[in-house]
Design a protein around this nucleic acid. Structure first.
Lengths: 347, 347
DNA sequence: CTGAAAGCGCTAACAC
DNA sequence: GTGTTAGCGCTTTCAG
């Protein structure tokens, strides 16, 4: 022997259910019954099997079991991007839920690209996951028929709300739009600019619609200003900066995505505007770092835990064979009032 | 028919390789050969098979394939917590790497608890993952022999550096400790407090050792101050605040974890100390939000992309059957100089 | 180059 | 209660 073996199991082959059966002096079927907790086994045999299994260090082979049973107890989780805190939080909750339910999750990222999404879903479906949790890059997920027709039970989250024949769950984005806008309105603001990353997706448009609706109800239809900042912080900063440089700048900004929140802050800082004294901001999402940021950001945020829990339950029901009509569930959002949005000062 | 079928595939059973073979008028073996890209098939047969497969919407059953071949092309990823940006970034990179290599990742979180870690690893090992990437809760991972002896190729990341017989990779945490300290020293600081979350782990102790070493080399052994703040931002804030309230407060703080960075900032703010004029800070890690934070934080940060890439390569080599001695690789860290650490002003 | 046959390890009927 | 048998869907010898 020269040096330790890198992996001690590299030589001896893994014990099978037959080995255990042999050692315990029973049949493979009995071993299987014991291991899967079937009651119809004498306690003496049960003890024999348990001991033999322990001695051999036996571990059931999930591949074989899955093949035979036709289910894998694995859920495919499809998100645009794990680097985005919203999605990583969602995955965190799903992971916890899966553990409790005896499932495992296969995680794939799509970069929010349709083609990547298609491919990644293909591969995990080939792995025969029992179900799919997907935050799609597409609002009409499943429109590519070849894909949709070969899917296991699937729940759509965040994106593609209402997309039949799937169950879908998302935050109440319209409410989110209203909540932020109304808060600012109540503080006396009339010139409120909404800034977002894009308007290409349903969920983003719903937020815009909420804003529109509130502005209209307040009789401020003509003051509606929507800034589409783009997908990066820098792009958002540029767009907001331009808006703030207009002769008639807004007195408040409502950022409706995480990136546009960051962009808005940067823009305000770049122009040396007194913040929050001269410019109010309602941010989107919450994050640990916000606790050290000054001014403490007032924000509209999603309840990721709820989104995860609701979608998980829906999926489990489908897997259990429910044949109900597709459900579409909206989860309320929260407005957390802190310091970044203040009452208007007259100008 | 009342309402749309929830899932269109719910009725018809998935086609198997035999169905394809039958339709193409060849044997299952030939289909298998075509699908796995073996050259020894006439192009006419190949075409037949490809077409039949397409018409049937055939998808290879990975369970069956895995069972037969004895490998799953799945890697188990074990991290304390996805909510932690460092780990979610690591997982992001691993996911990308896995896609490129034709693997899938099974992600589990351990909450940094030893027992949870044991259980979660057990379950994914039972699923016969081809390899394991783990950021362990334990510095002597694998000491529980029953576990270690039944593991597939495994690479330890971030934690448990040097823990044989595994390959391990981590940031050069000693260097991280030195880098931050030397920077502050070069700026003229002599009273530098290190703040960290805990000293229970190797990687955290290595950072402390780097600090110690630099302070000692500067002849400041008697000024060494180490603040163990705890696992939450609030606990860290409290601990730092106490340190700053001493009659002889430090002129600079070196935070060596993400949470202690946040805690330090909160403490500085809470005491209304002019920052960075009267207090310098070297932070740990970088994050998108830091771009909007003022003062722009000078920080020591890990190269997650490198950590992920190096560990992935090591794992692939092991899976390919390398029998080299276990490797232990340190990845350099970065010091990014910005605005939060300034030259000392005399007092 | 192709097909027949033998399992991978497990579980579900069905006898006993 | 327990054992025997027959596959799940695939890949892989091994003849032809």
């Amino acid at each position: 022997m020269d040096g330790p073996e890198p992996f001690s199991n590299s030589a001896k082959s893994t014990p099978t259910i037959r080995d255990v059966a042999h050692r315990a002096g029973v049949s493979p079927a009995t071993v299987s019954n014991v291991l899967s907790g079937k009651p119809s086994v004498t306690s003496s045999n049960r003890a024999l099997v348990v001991q033999a299994a322990a001695e051999l260090g036996y571990k059931s082979n999930y591949m074989a079991s899955s093949l035979r049973r036709g289910r894998t107890r694995t859920i495919g989780v499809v998100v645009p991007n794990l680097a985005n805190e919203f999605f990583s939080r969602l995955v965190t909750y799903w992971e916890a839920l899966s553990t409790r339910a005896g499932y495992e999750i296969l995680v794939v990222a799509t970069q929010d690209e349709v083609e990547t999404e298609r491919q990644r879903i293909q591969s995990i479906v080939a792995r025969r996951v029992d179900g799919l949790l997907v935050a799609s890059a597409l609002d009409d997920f499943g429109s590519a028929k070849d894909l949709a027709s070969s899917l296991p039970p699937t729940v759509l989250v965040d994106r593609a709300f209402g997309c039949a024949p799937f169950d879908t769950v998302a935050s109440n984005n319209f409410q989110a739009g209203k909540l932020g806008t109304c808060h600012l309105l109540a503080l006396g603001h009339r010139d409120i600019a909404l800034v977002t990353s894009a308007d290409s997706h349903l969920h983003l448009r719903a937020r815009i619609d909420g804003y529109r609706s509130s502005m209209t109800e307040a009789g401020l239809t003509d003051r509606i200003r929507i800034v589409i900042g783009g997908q990066s912080v820098e792009d958002c900063r540029g767009a907001v900066e331009q808006e703030l440089r207009r002769p008639d700048p807004p007195t408040a900004i409502f950022a409706t995505t995480f990136f546009s929140t960051l962009g808005a802050v940067k823009a305000i800082r770049a122009l040396n505007i007194a913040f929050p004294e001269e410019m109010s901001l309602v941010a989107f999402e919450q994050s640990e770092w916000m606790t050290v940021f000054r001014p403490y950001l007032t924000s509209v945020s999603q309840q990721s835990d709820q989104l995860a829990a609701v979608s998980w339950d829906l999926l489990m029901k489908r897997i259990d064979g429910t044949n109900d009509a597709p459900q579409h569930i909206k989860v309320p959002v929260h407005l957390t009032i802190r310091e970044s949005a203040r009452a208007t000062t007259l100008r």
